[in-house]
Amino acid sequence: MMADAYQVLCTGAMGILAVLMVVCLIRCAIGPRVSDRIMAVNMVSTLTIIMVGIMTVYLKEGYLADVALVYAVLSFLAVIVLCKVYTGIYRERRHAETVSALKEEQEGTACR
């Protein structure tokens, strides 16, 4: 009887989490800005951690809690690396634009 209750709770929670993850993926696909996409990735990894925790209870395997802990560290690292990479890309692009604009200006003054 208890086993049935555990199974119903875990399966229901897993179903809800799966639906929420699909919705987060939709946000990731339509997100107009890069930060929306990174935020959606962060949310998906958060829901994955909860899923791994539910698997720990459902399968009664203690080592899956370690997996959840490592996944938390990895998702944090992924968000930080993506933020740094996109900030760097934006800065490089802006730098290249200003350099090309200045070169055009200089050529214009040389022609005069």
Binding site: S35, G53, A68, F76, V79, I80, C83
Partner: peptide, 26 residues
């Protein structure tokens, strides 16, 4: 699992701060 909660208390503000900085800068 309690350790996961404590780790998220530390890491989630840092992640959202970096994300907001990215948004404001770009």
């Amino acid at each position: 699992m309690i350790l996961v909660i404590i780790f998220f208390w530390i890491s989630a503000p840092v992640a959202s701060h970096l994300l907001c900085r990215l948004e404001v800068e770009t």
